[in-house]
Computed example of a mutant assay.
Amino acid sequence: MHMHNPYESRPAADNKDAEVTVYRAETDYLKAAPEYKHLSQEKNGAVQVAVNIRRELKKAFPGVKFSVTTRSCDCVNIKWTDGVTEERVKAITDKYRDSYFDSMQDLAVSCRSRFNEIYGGVGYVFTKREYSGRLKEKANVIFMQKYGHAFTGEEKTPEMLKRGELWKEGHYFHRNGFAVQTEINKILYQTE
């Protein structure tokens, strides 16, 4: 007769206890982390996310005015003019996404983190940086310094950019080729 060892299933229980202990320690650390002390831990969905994003952006980029709004219970929109690049803003805001849409499976996939459990998460965080005339002029100057040699006697003005005339521009550079407007947009995207 085989006697059942009461300790045979114990390692699995020990592993579960260890996971719970680690989870609690990581959660406690995030709740008390000095870099997040200014953020809300209230559980109120997209509103909490918008409040926290606004606080983080204000702290990280004090001279830039951001508009942070909720569009639905699962979406936050962020807009600003000039200032910091979209890439730097996304470095802060991406951690607030708690899901993404997988078009191959036609469903939303959770990527929720401990950060989201404490400071909030939404499925969609949209960023939109707008450009003032002053920044467009600066991009035009950079463009002409870089590629002006290819436009002997031609000047690309911010007014042409505003009117969308440079999309139609037939000039291409280098062997790979690129449109004037495309290159100016790259400059705008990277310029602060």
Rank of each mutant, 00 (worst) to 15 (best):
M1G: 14
H4V: 13
P6Y: 03
S9K: 10
N15L: 15
D17E: 14
A18K: 15
A25E: 14
A25H: 09
Y29Q: 04
L30G: 02
L30H: 06
K31P: 13
A33Q: 05
Y36N: 14
Y36D: 10
K37A: 15
L39Y: 09
Q41Y: 08
K43V: 05
N44F: 08
G45T: 00
A46V: 00
A50N: 01
N52I: 00
N52E: 04
I53K: 00
I53L: 07
E56G: 00
E56S: 06
A60I: 02
P62I: 00
F66R: 01
V68Q: 04
T69H: 08
T69D: 11
C73I: 12
D74A: 03
C75Q: 12
V76E: 03
K79R: 11
G83I: 01
E86Q: 06
R88N: 09
A91E: 13
K95I: 07
F101V: 02
D102G: 00
D102T: 00
Q105I: 05
L107K: 10
S110V: 02
S110R: 04
C111H: 04
R112F: 10
S113T: 15
R114K: 15
F115L: 03
Y119F: 15
G121L: 02
V122G: 02
Y124P: 02
E130F: 14
Y131M: 02
K136R: 13
I142A: 06
Q145P: 08
K146V: 01
G153T: 02
E154L: 09
K156L: 12
K156T: 03
K156F: 15
K156E: 05
P158T: 01
E159M: 01
L161P: 06
G164N: 04
G164W: 08
E169N: 11
E169H: 09
G170M: 08
H174N: 12
R175Y: 14
R175F: 12
F178Y: 14
T182D: 15
E183N: 08
I184P: 15
Q190N: 15
